[in-house]
Design a protein around this nucleic acid. Structure first.
Lengths: 148, 148
DNA sequence: TCTGAAACCACTTAACT
DNA sequence: AGTTAAGTGGTTTCAGA
């Protein structure tokens, strides 16, 4: 991956719908050259996905919460993974160091939907401790990996 | 926003580079109709951004950490905001309920770059307490808001 | 707000450096 | 790995419903 690839990636991060012709004129490389590089970046897995970031307030998901939880023993990892994959309001699930085993980021409609989701989480086999933090406001929220 | 708009949004979330002609045939609506709806969704702010999600391992950012911190009093919010905006390895910054004031999600190269960033964080005026959790593995990591 | 046709522009292919 | 040029296909505009 050279500087031209990085320019392409940076521009796609800013706007994933930028056209090849715009990239071509900005980077001063022909369209077929840009197109080939892009195909390679996609095929090699450097670009995992192109996605649209939506405004939470306009799609009725106004409550963000962070949930930490511990298991009585490590053997429940697989069934817990299946559970979180199926819960679309769980946006992040990390296996972490420290007092808890997992951290979850939840984006949901309101306190009622959060309560229902927390109930389902606590029903998972092996869960022995949870802690819930409500997010009051989001100062920044950027895509995970960025090219500078 | 009706069901057709939701289909468009859902498809753009899965793949932000999907063409209008593909949307047109999938949704059974003419290309000009799709194009107009898309322009309205962009102009009204429902779609905040189109972005490319990159593979962290392939762009040399292999360490994720969660940092929690407290201030001695609430007056340092503005300068802290300026600081986090300028730190590109800080991907999320939330003002939260609970023992700490802010939570940060950091994605960086290695323990050395994490250490340097933590030093800069602790140098911010008013910071009195921090706690750092290292992420061992990511079970799921989805874009924040999704249409189902 | 939608459709269909035409004009315009972007993308891909192919031949070649 | 790159270019140019031709051909293909996607997007926008516009007239009309």
């Amino acid at each position: 991956m050279d500087d031209i690839d990085k320019k392409i990636l940076k521009r796609l991060q800013e706007n994933a719908r930028v056209t090849i012709s715009v990239l071509s004129s900005e980077i001063s490389l022909s369209m077929p050259a840009i197109s080939e590089r892009l195909k390679k970046l996609e095929a090699s897995g450097v670009i995992k996905q192109y996605t649209a970031i939506l405004n939470p307030e306009l799609v009725d998901k106004q409550l963000m919460a962070l949930v930490y939880l511990s298991f009585d023993n490590p053997s429940h990892g697989d069934s817990f993974k299946n559970f979180v994959v199926g819960e679309s309001d769980i946006k992040e699930c990390f296996y972490i160091t420290g007092d808890f085993d997992y951290s979850l980021k939840i984006i949901t409609q309101n306190t009622t939907t959060l309560e229902n989701l927390l109930t389902r989480i606590k029903e998972q086999t092996g869960v022995i401790k949870t802690q819930t933090i409500v997010v009051l406001s989001s100062i920044i929220d950027r895509p995970s990996v960025t090219i500078e």
